[in-house]
Amino acid sequence: MNPGDFDYVRNFVRDQAAIVLEPGKEYLVESRLQTLVRKEKLGSLDELISRLRADPKNGLHRKVLDAMTTNETLFFRDVHPFEALRKSILPELMARRAKERQLRFWCGAASTGQEPYSVLMLIAEHFPELLGWDFTFVATDLCSEVLARARSGRFNQLEVNRGLPASLLAKYFVPQGAEWEFREALRRRVEFRELNLVKAWPWLPGLDLVFLRNVMIYFDVQAKKAILANVRRLLRPGGYLLLGGAETTFNVDDAFERVAFDKTSCYRVKPA
């Protein structure tokens, strides 16, 4: 891939999604875009880039953005945050909101749906009464293709092998040919919508629990600051923010404080 083409793609993904691609990542851009070249039945990567440069409205830009988004995810990723949810966070939030019986969750990088579905399984297993509350769970992602898969609730054998205990697979999934489908009754409790974290967030309600795990690592500091400021604005009193294991609010937005649990930590807005 020539330097000019690489710069074109990396500037585009930085401007549109604040995704940072350092020099040296040509192999990543090339490998991801080669797949798109084949899907679009184009002759070469050069042809793809020429089309991108020639016409900003041919729909290819959106597909490039989707292709360059890392969608790595798995069920019950890192385990310990889910233990903290079960042992501490959900009981605390439910006690806090017992009067109005209302909770609002948001997962901001839902990818193919494993994270919101893991949370729903945890709720169904340990806090089934919550499903009778005024409970909403919005799950968003930048990539429309992965959101379509998330909505379908269908996972292949590789995906269900990643972090999903066999007992939960048997209880919450229905075999559909070579795939497994998350049961509809729980699946419809999540509303999947498209949202670019570095653009406007027009329709999110006040939130009790925010999952932004393993997505901030892709952004530059400016984008991280803007995202955390938005989260701070939306979190209701006592609400929690969950980040990935390698992510922190420290030195990015000091209005948050770290709350340690057994083997993990979460964040909430410091009391005024």
């Binding site: 192999y27 990543l28 090339e30 969608n71």
Partner: peptide, 26 residues
């Protein structure tokens, strides 16, 4: 072609074979 990408991921980002496979092939 894929082996070439895996090799470059290992060289540039010092990834192990398995990490490079995961990143590029999911």
């Amino acid at each position: 072609e894929i082996l070439g990408f895996i090799q470059r991921a290992q060289e540039v980002d010092h990834l192990a074979q398995l990490e490079a496979e995961s990143l590029l092939l999911n």
